[in-house]
Design a protein around this nucleic acid. Structure first.
Length: 505
DNA sequence: AAAAAAC
């Protein structure tokens, strides 16, 4: 059997790998590391969770042992689609590079340039970047790409989805043709193949798992639900309550606003919860993810920023609060659980209007997903005018045939209004929603005496930093509207508020 | 019907 010792890695790297507790490489590592060490180009087709990151980090560390970095001339460059993934790769360099004295610089947006500039000035052996911030540094003339020996393009298919390919091409043009290129993608659509053909020279191709396969260790279930947000939230809470095996879970929403709303709702209902989406300030993003990884937070409400690649080893549950619009996202989302051979559970709330997306998902994964407790036809017909379907018992005939077993979660819909506690909860939820509507960040800033009393406001603001853009615009038009300097945040003043405050000074 | 990424 192949071990890490057989792959040609240096002693320093091997000992770090051993210390981390690994002896047997994953297939992508066994396939990619030897040719990478021989300076071959690599085309790696692998999902995240296959050990892909180590398959380029380990050979890079070995190769970097020869030579030294010069100021502003990085020796290697890794491109990642999201800030979290970039940070995760940086952690891998720390972990496996503990016997090396390498300068690793993480160049991502949302944080200050100062420290990044300092690291570049010192000379970086490894540059780990999101494309926007890298180009920003280049334009500021802080960076010479002519010394880059190894270029890693990670998650290429996702870069394509996100429209990063032109940026990637600009960056690649600045790097000498003699470089070694390691190119990874979970899938190989024609555009990606074309890109790979242009970027790679005679690559070693390693394909490890069929794209769009879902781990067998993940139990997948569908949960029929009405389309109203408060009903979905009630259903989700109920579902969470029945999961005795739940250690922690990620709850995916399609929209950033819904991430913020659901986060607040769950928090109000006493859940240990965090939020993660791309319009939150970077500090909150980092804190929330760290809290979830440390088990300080049980539930993480997230947008698809967390769907791919995030390596959180022990997630027991994934909940799709919304059915993802793109079927591949389903595969990526539920791939956050059932990792490393562990078992996992994935529940997807499905409303009537989601059925076409659901069909696409089942087609993609090549299997039908079981309903958790009665399929979508078990729900009453949608109300024509107002949501009074609960009262319209005449419509409920179709459900009777499936009714009747224990602790039936559908009972809340079957029972007449007066026999169920659910409508009371629902009414309360409406108030929660109203509360959300009348409490946008901008309003809170002006009446921020209340902030002090609300511990939620002291850290980890899950509200879109977009709102600050709106604030800034608004402030431009109403110059008289110069509210007080933000108070009550302690050391955790969101970055955007500092910008507003600075603009005034 | 969305999200992600630079200021």
């Amino acid at each position: 059997m192949t071990t890490f010792a057989d792959l040609g890695l240096s002693q320093k790297v091997l000992s770090a790998v051993t210390d981390a507790g690994y002896t047997i490489p994953t297939p992508i590592q066994a396939g990619a590391i030897p040719p990478a060490l021989q300076r071959r180009d690599i085309l790696g087709i692998a999902q995240t969770g296959t050990g892909k990151t180590a398959s380029f980090v380990l050979p890079m560390l070995t190769l970097l042992e020869k030579g030294r970095a010069r100021a502003r001339m990085p020796r290697t460059l890794i491109l990642e689609p999201t800030r979290e993934l970039a940070a995760q790769v940086a952690e891998n360099f720390e972990k496996y590079g503990r016997n090396h004295k390498l300068n690793v610089a993480l160049l991502i947006g949302g944080v200050s340039f100062d420290e990044q500039d300092r690291k570049l000035e010192r000379g970086a052996d490894v540059l780990i970047c999101t494309p926007g911030r890298l180009l920003d540094h280049c334009e500021r003339g802080k960076l010479l790409m002519t010394g880059v020996e190894i270029l890693v393009i990670d998650e290429a298919d996702r870069m394509l989805d996100m429209g990063f390919i032109p940026d990637i091409e600009r960056i690649a043009k600045m790097i000498p043709f003699t470089r070694q290129t390691l190119f990874f993608s979970a899938t190989m659509p024609p555009e990606i193949q074309k890109l790979a053909d242009r970027f790679l020279q005679n690559p070693e191709r390693i394909e490890v798992a069929k794209p769009s396969s879902t781990a067998l260790t993940v139990t997948q279930r569908l949960v029929a639900c009405h389309n109203k947000d408060y009903e979905k939230r009630a259903k989700l809470r109920e579902l969470i309550g029945t999961q005795s095996e739940l250690k922690n879970g990620i709850i995916f929403c399609n929209r950033k606003k819904d991430v913020a709303d659901l986060y607040r709702s769950l928090e109000r209902h006493g859940f240990s919860v965090g939020a993660l989406h791309g319009d939150m300030d970077q500090r909150s993003r980092t804190n929330m993810l760290a809290g979830f990884k440390d088990n300080q937070i049980t539930l993480l409400v997230a947008s698809d920023v967390a769907a791919r690649g995030l390596d959180i080893p022990d997630v027991s549950h994934v909940f799709n609060f919304d059915v993802p619009i793109h079927a591949e996202d389903y595969v990526h989302r539920i791939g956050r659980t059932g990792r490393a051979g562990r078992s996992g559970a994935a529940f997807t709330l499905v409303t009537r209007s989601d059925t076409k997306f659901l069909d696409a998902i089942e087609k993609l994964i090549g299997q039908t997903i079981e309903w958790h407790d009665g399929d979508i036809s078990a729900l009453p017909a949608p109300a024509e005018s107002h949501d009074e379907s609960r009262g319209k018992r005449g419509r409920d005939k179709g459900r009777e045939r499936r009714g009747g077993h224990k602790s039936d979660t559908r009972s809340e819909y079957v029972k007449p209004v007066e026999a169920s506690v659910e409508p009371v909860k629902a009414a309360e939820e409406v108030q929660v929603m109203e509360a959300i509507k009348v409490e946008p960040v901008a309003t809170e800033r002006k009446t921020d005496k209340r902030r002090d009393q609300n511990p939620r406001n002291n850290r980890n603001n899950p509200y879109p930093a977009n709102d600050d853009n709106r604030d800034r615009r608004r402030n431009r038009h109403h110059d008289h509207d110069d509210g007080p300097t933000p108070v009550g945040f302690g050391d955790d003043i969101p970055a955007f508020m500092l910008i507003v405050a600075a603009a005034k000074a």
